[in-house]
Every structure is written in C-alpha cells, then in structure tokens.
Simulated scan of single mutants.
Amino acid sequence: MINFIGIGSAFNTQLGNTSAFIKKKDSLLLIDSGGTVFHRLRELNILEEIKKIYIIITHTHPDHVGSLGEVIFYSYYILEHKPTVFFPNGELMKSFLTSIGVSQEMYLLESSSKVGFADENLGEISVEFLPVSHVKTIPAYGFVMRQIEGVFYYSGDSNHIEDEIITRLKNGELDRIYQDTCGLDYEGNSHMSLRKLKETIHSDLRNQVYCMHLDQHIDPKEIVHQGFHVVK
C-alpha cells in the first residue's frame, strides 16, 4: 500500500495537495510534489536520513509540481544526492525545472513510458505511464505500478478511466485503483465526478477503488456509502 501526504484537490487546501509515498529504510518513492508537499515532508520528518529519492510526476499543474524544486534542492544540497524524476515528457520537465532554477546536474530524469528500477529497500519496481484525459493545455498521465506488494493503477488527475484499466481490474491484473474523484458534476469537467465513477465501476469492483484528490463538494461518507474507499 502507498501512504498519502495529502488527498485534496487544488482548491481544497484543508486536505493538502494530493501526493503519496512509499518509504522503506533510507529509500523514498514520492508520487507528485504539489505546493504543500515539501512542507508536509519536512513536518512529518519523512526526508530524514533518506539516501535515495524517486519522484513520479503525473502532470505539471502547480498542485502536483509546486514544490518539486524544493524537494530536488533539499535532496541535492542537504541530503547530498540526486533524486530521480520519472515523467514521460522529458523536454517539458527539463524546461519546467530550468524555469524555476533547477539545473540538470541536480537530478536524474527518466522519460520513457515504461521504466523499471531496483532499489535495495524498495525492491523491484516497474512503472507504465498511460496518457489520461484531463486538460488540453498540458499532457497528463496515470500509471500502473508493479511492486512486491502488488499492482495498482494511479490516475493522477483524470476525468475518465480507460476500458483497458477496467478490464485489468476485472481480470485480476490490478489489485486496486486510486482515482481522482470530485463532487462537482458538469459537462467538460477535467476531474471525474462521483456520479461518473459509479457509472464506470460495477458494484462488485468498488471495494478495490480508492478515491483521492477530493474537492470541497464531495462527502466522504457518500463515497463509502457507494462502496468505494477514501484514501487516508
């Protein structure tokens, strides 16, 4: 299982920017690094004595990369090692980081759609990035991660779940789904409404779906009532 630092949407600051992590001994894998994330990492002492940091980025909206520069700076200057950033659009990521003063010698960048690595603490991990439907202005990705504890799909910000992911869940190829879910429900929404999620996921599969990136308009009790989970 992954642990969450925050579970809120961009404007639901009370819940913090949605970000998750896996920490084992002195290795850390971080999923997204929005504006509130570095503060929470320091507040919770998650970065203490870390020797290896791997960062998966789903897209470049501020609530997902707002403190990415701080995490890289802290890793490079304080922890004295280069973190590895995973993002399929390498040119976009390099351009973004350069624009905020992060030079390329401070980090390693992996920009393949399918990546794999072995860490002495985290074990063998593979990540398969999949384009998702979010906004037209920037590319956005979900991903399937395979690790020793199992396989899961993480949507990032998305208003749709591809049939391929649903099929994998039905076939037992996925243990669980982490899905961007909101209360607002209107045509053209860049996030998935709870109504749409209910229409997409059959009741028999809802126990394997964990809702995240919650906006101010959704009631966590209603999520649970519909058979889904709320990430904690």
Rank of each mutant, 00 (worst) to 15 (best):
L41H: 04
H229F: 10
G227Q: 08
S95K: 15
E48I: 07
G69W: 06
R206P: 08
E162I: 10
I56F: 08
I56G: 04
I165L: 01
R195P: 00
Q208F: 04
F73T: 12
I53M: 06
Q14K: 14
T98P: 00
I100N: 07
P131Q: 08
G34E: 01
Q147R: 14
L174H: 06
S33L: 04
S9I: 03
K24T: 12
S33E: 01
L15K: 13
G6V: 02
T13N: 14
H134R: 06
Y186P: 00
Y76R: 00
V102C: 15
V85P: 08
Y107Q: 04
S103N: 12
D185H: 06
L68N: 05
G8V: 03
S126L: 10
I100G: 08
F11H: 13
D119I: 01
H134F: 15
I2C: 00
Q147A: 13
V132D: 00
L79S: 07
S112D: 15
L30E: 03
H229W: 08
V102P: 03
A20M: 10
G156D: 06
C182K: 08
I22Y: 01
N89R: 11
L194A: 02
Y210K: 09
L92S: 08
L29E: 03
N17C: 12
T13S: 12
Y141A: 02
N207D: 14
L97R: 07
Y107T: 03
H213A: 12
I31N: 04
L44W: 13
P220N: 11
E149K: 13
M93H: 01
Q208A: 12
K198L: 09
E48W: 04
P83M: 10
S133K: 13
E222K: 13
P62A: 05
F73H: 13
F21A: 00
K24A: 10
L205K: 09
V102F: 11
F73C: 10
T18M: 01
I161T: 11
L214R: 06
F228H: 05
S19D: 02
V209P: 03
N121G: 00
R168W: 06
A140E: 02
D157L: 03
D219F: 09
T36N: 12
L184M: 12
K23E: 05
V144I: 15
I177F: 13
S133D: 13
M106W: 08
R206H: 09
S193Q: 02
